[in-house]
């Protein structure tokens, strides 16, 4: 069997690339930031109220970059409007669901921010609940849109949305801590976010990292003990061509080093918390790269 070799074939481009992977990362970090924003106004944890506005604005800003990536990545940018027209909308297409979510999520966030600024607890909570469902759904959809391709063996797992949501949660917190750190330089002392709150957020981030490592381990088990395609996808594509984003950027830089920092005495130092936050926020992007391009790469030789 090993004596046969493929000598000629058509060449196939990978269809979704860097812009889509950045979009997945942005939507995730946006959803994660919004969850933090909702801690105070939706879940009633009062000490989180001061950061609600910053977190919402960060979530909105990141989401405003998304259309630039998505629309200009289309072959026909003007036709993005088709995704909103009832005559074109296809109910079985995951991307059609995503289009609705991506449109409604920022609208709900804007309304939520309006009520937060107006200090209207009832309506902020009411709209916040809707917005948080939309935030999670928008990111759930990014996992699902690739999961529902049975031919992409690396992506075809029910763990996909969970992996995305957990990554969103930790990268959102990481990015939020960095933003709050920068924000503290520019606001009056009484408006600054307390250090103890950031320590607490880092603690939540640590739980998220542990859960993310657990999910990654489950995914590893499935591919390692799975079909030949899954083993090949993991063993040769992810550990080979996508070794840096998969092993180094996501697993080592994005998960294990921050975890080591956050379980050590360094977690009480500013350098430790900010460093871990930075690594997590950008390490998660490694997962978006291998997830989007790795699954397609294997098949490009078929």
């Amino acid at each position: 069997m090993d004596d046969s070799v493929i000598i000629s074939n058509a060449f196939h481009h990978v269809a979704w690339g860097t812009p889509i992977s950045i979009y997945f990362w942005l939507v995730g970090a946006s959803a994660g930031s919004f969850v933090l924003s909702a801690f105070g106004w939706v879940f009633g944890i009062k000490r989180y109220k001061p950061l609600a506005l910053s977190a919402s604005i960060l979530a909105i800003v990141m989401l405003l970059i998304v259309p630039v990536l998505l629309i200009w990545d289309l072959g026909k940018p003007l036709r993005f409007i088709y995704l909103m027209l009832p005559g074109y909308w296809h109910s079985t297409g995951p991307m059609a669901w995503g289009a609705l979510l991506i449109m409604s999520y920022p609208v709900s966030m804007f309304i939520y921010v309006y009520f937060v600024v107006k200090n209207d607890q009832f309506w902020a909570r009411f709209v916040g609940i809707i917005a948080i469902v939309l935030a999670l759904s928008t990111h759930w959809y990014t996992g699902v849109v690739m999961e529902l391709n049975p031919g992409r063996y690396i992506n075809h797992t029910a763990l996909a949305p969970l992996l995305f949501l957990t990554g969103a949660f930790i990268s959102g917190i990481g990015l939020m801590i960095i933003v709050l750190w920068i924000q503290n330089f520019f606001v009056r002392p009484e408006k600054r976010i307390e250090w103890s709150l950031m320590e607490e957020m880092a603690q939540y981030m640590m739980y998220g990292i542990v859960f993310d490592i657990f999910l990654l381990y489950l995914d590893f088990m499935q591919t390692h003990y799975g079909t030949e395609s899954e083993m090949l996808g993991h063993g040769e594509v992810l550990m080979g061509i996508f070794n840096f984003p998969y092993v180094w950027l996501e697993t080592v830089i994005g998960l294990f080093i921050p975890l080591a920092i956050l379980v050590s005495p360094l977690k009480r130092t500013r350098l430790g918390v900010y460093g871990a936050s930075f690594l997590v926020a950008f390490g998660v992007y490694g997962m978006r790269i291998w997830w989007v391009m790795g699954g397609q790469y294997l098949q490009s030789f078929y």
């Binding site: 269809a15 026909k76 995951p94 690739m146």
Partner: peptide, 11 residues
């Protein structure tokens, strides 16, 4: 009708 999103290519 095609918007060039390449969902079908991935699928």
């Amino acid at each position: 009708r095609c918007i060039g999103c390449r969902t079908c290519v991935v699928a």
